[in-house]
Design a binder for these strands. Structure first.
Lengths: 348, 348
DNA sequence: TGGTGATTTGGTAGCGCTACCATTTTTTTC
DNA sequence: GAAAAAAATGGTAGCGCTACCAAATCACCA
């Protein structure tokens, strides 16, 4: 067992972990550790001369701060957990991409969490990631277990809830009005003169945002005096495959249908691809509308009419709201409607 | 300023951060803090009675460990940074998904990092994330800045390099032989009787794995006695859009071409979609082959011939290799060829 | 019954950093 | 030019946890 000259047993450093510490930099620069800490975190409180000496020592030794230690001491590890329902759904990926591209240059790292649409898992995930003393947090949706919500509110750091818009939120909120978006497409179909319209979705038992769109769809039809309410659904996650299946099912079960309103573009694209294959003409034989604005929609024949949501931008804006609060100020607004846009193309 | 009865100034807890600590649990259970720590981390070293008392206290108080503190003390924060070139490329997303689905149930969290194909950024990202005292790490590719490689080797914790296969690696390696995969498709095209074949890719200046596939393609053609070597490329990231553009470019510049070998399925799908639109028959007029096995390929008309790579599974396996090493053992193998498969469909 | 070793529990110190306060140095003011 | 104010630097303690060692308890056998 190694002992140093003072006779105190030397504590082994963590395996292979011979990183340069702040102390090493302080020794090299001939100042106290706390001064190095200041030079790095609040350089305006350190004289120019010292600051330079310290900067030199930092680069000479290749010092990289141990964020863990910093986090323990001051709270805030520059980690931002992003909790989404699924990583297999392109939508969330694009939002995450926007978040990541905005946070990383600002010196924050994204910690991924996925809940599989299970609020129980979400709650325990919240507990877990709070264990990392994150600087802020991004959550999907406005509905959470009460325990998670309480904990996050008590936490007192910035939280952004995305994808959905509501009256009340934990802290900040950015998203779209799902009900209105659903109604928008339905109204468009009605305006086009379609009367027999069905809504087709997947996993609507747990994906309540899809349910909200369906709700909007129904209200719009009702307002237009159309009582027919046909719903086809499936429990598997959305995919081209399931879109094709739902399409064939609808064609088979209700040959009189004139238009299909899909819960998202994955399903709608699958339907158009199947239509291409079996020779069903869109929109002459049947019209197809989607939701999201996936890029594939523009490249199909016919091109897909859809309600686009700026997903990447939503991520960017969510991150900016977070950063604004983290950097002391307050965001321009704590509730942002990122909006949607009806893109009328050839499929309706 | 609050002072407690001992007269020592009380240190304010971090804002709003009134989490239950291990000490609180210890008090509740009437044991020493270290015993609680043991009950949670190495329960086999604690008697059954105490263990139960402690477990009760934990759930009564809703204790959640502060992983930051644990990490500082023992190294290893149960964070696994995953460093990929881009989050806008579906391939990496699917790998990340596999990683995440495997690590999260084992109690590890994924920390995302993206390099934009820039090795310099990768190196500084490595420095940054090592500041989180991660338990292990997953990197994309085998080529890194020397500084990053040195640091990771000295680090001494498990590292998995994915996507690519090589003679030497930092620690563990799982992926596919890109050169062979490229050659595989090229040989298939030759076998089908196509003679005038072009390779089409994007961003090949920085995406050296695509370059490897092109290299394999060239070698295979050469071996078959075909000297023609046509390469179309673009600098934008791969997309349906760029695939369509490259397709039209190739058709225009070299009307004699019989087959197109695309660097990935995004491009190839774009080409088929464009072919559908302008009425070019695939494969009668021109054959199209891809790489990756994106699900979209199966739903196109004609269905896309491609070399599939099990991306999700690669992520799962990479995570398993990491977990095997983290849990003390050693993985079955530290170099895994995840393989690829030629899926011959109608587009060739 | 006492002694030996194995098992269970506790005490102490410290991971690397920063909050808070104290001290020193510099600048400003009258 | 001395006093007051401001700015720059340092000392100390502790964030919540675990490694390491020491002490206490238990089990077992001669």
């Amino acid at each position: 067992m190694s002992t140093n000259k003072t006779g105190v047993r030397e504590r082994r450093r963590h395996q292979g972990d011979n990183r340069v510490t702040l102390k090493d930099v302080a020794r090299e620069a001939g100042v106290a550790p706390i001064t190095v800490s200041r030079a790095l975190n609040t350089p305006e409180n350190v004289s120019a001369g010292l600051r330079e000496r310290i900067d030199n020592a930092v680069s000479a030794l290749g010092y990289v701060p141990n964020l863990i230690a910093g986090g323990l001491a001051s709270a805030g590890t520059r980690v931002i957990p992003v909790v989404v329902p699924s990583l297999s759904i392109l939508t969330y990926i694009e939002v995450i991409h926007g978040i990541q591209q905005t946070l990383e240059p600002a010196g924050y790292q994204v910690l991924l969490g996925s809940t599989d649409f299970d609020l129980e898992r979400e709650a325990s995930l919240v507990d877990t990631v709070l264990g990392y003393s994150p600087s802020g947090m991004i959550m999907t949706g406005l509905r959470h277990r009460e325990s998670a919500e309480r904990r996050l509110k008590a936490w007192g750091r910035p939280v952004v809830e995305i994808m959905e818009l509501g009256e009340t939120c934990i802290d900040m909120n950015i998203g779209v009005e799902n009900t209105e978006a659903g109604a928008c497409m339905a109204r468009h179909l009605v305006e086009r003169g379609y009367q027999r319209i069905a809504f087709l979705g997947t996993g609507m038992a747990h994906d309540y945002r899809a349910r909200l769109r369906y709700e909007g769809h129904r209200q719009a039809l009702k307002a237009a005096g159309i009582e027919s309410d046909v719903l086809f659904q499936d429990d598997q996650p959305s995919s081209y495959e399931v879109g094709r299946k739902l399409f064939l099912e609808a064609l088979d079960a209700r040959p009189e249908l004139q238009a299909l309103h899909f819960a998202n573009d994955n399903l709608a694209a699958g339907a158009i691809l199947e239509a291409n294959r079996i020779g069903v003409r869109v929109p002459q034989d049947i019209a197809i509308g989607g939701y999201l604005g996936l890029s594939l929609g523009e490249h199909l024949t016919p091109r897909l009419t859809t309600v686009t949501v700026p997903r990447y931008e939503m991520g960017v804006e969510a991150a900016k709201m977070l950063l604004a609060k983290l950097e002391g100020g307050s965001p321009a607004s704590s509730r942002v409607d990122i909006g949607y846009e009806l893109k009328v193309r050839e499929s309706t």
